[in-house]
Write a protein that binds this DNA or RNA. Sequence first.
DNA 1: ACGATTTTGTGAATGATTTCACAAGGTTCG
DNA 2: CGAACCTTGTGAAATCATTCACAAAATCGT
Lengths: 224, 224
Amino acid sequence: MTETRVPIPTLERLAIYLRVLLDAHEAGIQTLSSQEVEQHSGINAAQFRKDLSYFGEFGKPGVGYSVAGLIQCIERILRLDAEQPILLVGAGNIGAALVGYPNFQAHRLRIAAVFDNNFVKIGRPFGDLVIEDIARIREINATIGARLGIIAVPASAAQEVADLLVEAGVTGILNFAPTILRVPPYVHVRNVSFLQELAVLSYQAVEESLCMNGQASRGGEDAV
Amino acid sequence: MTETRVPIPTLERLAIYLRVLLDAHEAGIQTLSSQEVEQHSGINAAQFRKDLSYFGEFGKPGVGYSVAGLIQCIERILRLDAEQPILLVGAGNIGAALVGYPNFQAHRLRIAAVFDNNFVKIGRPFGDLVIEDIARIREINATIGARLGIIAVPASAAQEVADLLVEAGVTGILNFAPTILRVPPYVHVRNVSFLQELAVLSYQAVEESLCMNGQASRGGEDAV
DNA sequence: ACGATTTTGTGAATGATTTCACAAGGTTCG
DNA sequence: CGAACCTTGTGAAATCATTCACAAAATCGT
Ligand SMILES: NC(=O)c1ccc[n+]([C@@H]2O[C@H](COP(=O)([O-])OP(=O)(O)OC[C@H]3O[C@@H](n4cnc5c(N)ncnc54)[C@H](O)[C@@H]3O)[C@@H](O)[C@H]2O)c1
Ligand SMILES: NC(=O)c1ccc[n+]([C@@H]2O[C@H](COP(=O)([O-])OP(=O)(O)OC[C@H]3O[C@@H](n4cnc5c(N)ncnc54)[C@H](O)[C@@H]3O)[C@@H](O)[C@H]2O)c1
C-alpha cells in the first residue's frame, strides 16, 4: 500500500461494502472472502481488495476478512466510528423525509439541527427537533461543531445557504438543489439530482438513436 | 462522430447541460459558446463539445450553440421531448416528496401512478393521484405504458417490487432502497443513496488517515 | 473581398480506474 | 510434517475518460 490519493469511486464503494458487511454481521456471518463480497455487492473481487489496499491490509490469505473487524476499519476510515452531527437546512419535503429516516442512526450520522428562514416554520417541531432560524446557524454550530451540512432549499436560495454553512464551519455539503455551488477549495460538495438520474434512465430505457447527425443549431430560433 | 457506445458520464452531464441551457433560455440568452457553458456548469469546454459529438454536430464554428436548438436536441437525445410517464412504488416519505415536486414537469417527467401495498393507504389521495394497489401494477401499466419506475419502499421489499416493475414492462428503475437489485440484463438500474453520499463527504470533510496499516482482521471477533 | 478573430469538432496524448494474473501467506487434513 | 488448497495484496496490462491542441468553418469590420 503506497502513498496515493484515494480515488473517489473507491470511497463510494466503501459505503457499499459497509452495507454488505453490516447485513452479513446481522446474519451472524463471521468471515467473508472478497469473492463472497462480490456476490453480495456486484463489485469485482479484485476491485474490493484494491480498494481496501489504499488503507492497509485487512484480510488473511486463505481465510478472508473478519466481518466485525472490517466493519470497524471501514467505519474508522469513513469517520463513522464516532457520531457525526449534520446540519440540515430546509424544512420542506426533502427535509421531512431526511429527519424521519431511521437508517442514519445505524451509520452514526445524526441530523443535529434543522434550519429554515420561514417565520411560520421556525420554532415548530420537526421530527425530534425544533426548527431553528437560519440566522442563528453559526451561533448554533459553535456548540454542535458539525462538519457536514445538507442543503434542501429551493435552488434560488442554495448558494446563499452554502455560504452560511461554510461560514458556520461546514466542510462537506450534500446539495439537493439543482445548482452548481461555488465554495472554497477546501469544501467538498456532492450533488443529489433525481432529475439527472431519471434523465439518464430515460435515455437508457429506450437506447435508440433519434437526434443523430445533421442540421445542427436549427430549433425554433437561430443562432445569430 | 464515429459509432461508439455513449459513456455514462456523458449521459449524466447531458442533464446538467440541459439545466444550464434552460436557465439561459429563461434569461433570454440565444447563443452560448462551449466556453460559456463551462462557466455556468463547471464542466470543461472540450468535454462539453466531445459529449455532444457522440450524437452529432450542433454548433456553428465562430458562433456557438443556439440555446433553443440545443435544448430541443438534448431533450430528444434523453427522450424528454415527449411526456415520459413514471410509476412510483411506495407512498411514504420519499414518495411524498417526489409526487409534490414541481420540477419534474419542466423536464416532461410525470409520475403517472403511485402504488403501495398498505391497505390503509390504498385509495387515499397522494398529490394529484390516488394510491393504487401494487397488485394491479401490471394491469394499470398496460394502459400507461411507462418504461420508468421508482422504488421508494423499504429495502426488504425492494427486490420483490423490482420484479413486479419489470413484469409490468419497466426497463429503467430509480432505486432509493439500500439494496442491490437483480434484474434482467436489458433493465437499467440507478441507485440513489444519501447514506453513501454522506459517507463519502464524512471522509472528505476530515481528510486525514487513521485506520492505516497494521493489524488487520482484529476487531472484536476473529476470523476463523 | 479578405484578413483578423472566434469557436467548433475531433484525433492524439494524457490521466484515471478497473481488471488480470500471480507470488506469497495461511489453512486443512492425512 | 507436508502436500493440496484457498485467498490475499499488488504490480502490470487493459480499459475507460478527460484534456489538449489544431485544422476547418463561420463571422465581422473595413
Ligand atoms: N421534492 C423533491 O422530490 C425534490 C427532488 C429533487 C430535488 N429537489 C430539490 O430539493 C430542494 C428542496 O426541495 P423540497 O421539495 O424539500 O422543497 P420545499 O419547498 O418543500 O422546502 C424548501 C424549504 O426551504 C426553506 N427555505 C427557503 N429559502 C431558505 C433560506 N434562504 N434559508 C433557509 N431555508 C429556506 C423553505 O422555507 C422551505 O421550508 C429544492 O432545491 C428542490 O429543487 C426536491
Ligand atoms: N426517508 C429518507 O430520507 C430516505 C433516505 C435514504 C433512503 N431511503 C430509502 O427509501 C426507501 C423509502 O423510504 P421512506 O422513508 O419513504 O419509507 P416509508 O416507510 O416512509 O415508506 C415506504 C412505503 O412503502 C410501502 N411498501 C412497503 N412494502 C411495499 C410493497 N411490497 N409494495 C408496495 N409498497 C410497499 C409502505 O407501505 C410505505 O408506504 C427506503 O428503502 C429507505 O431506506 C429513505
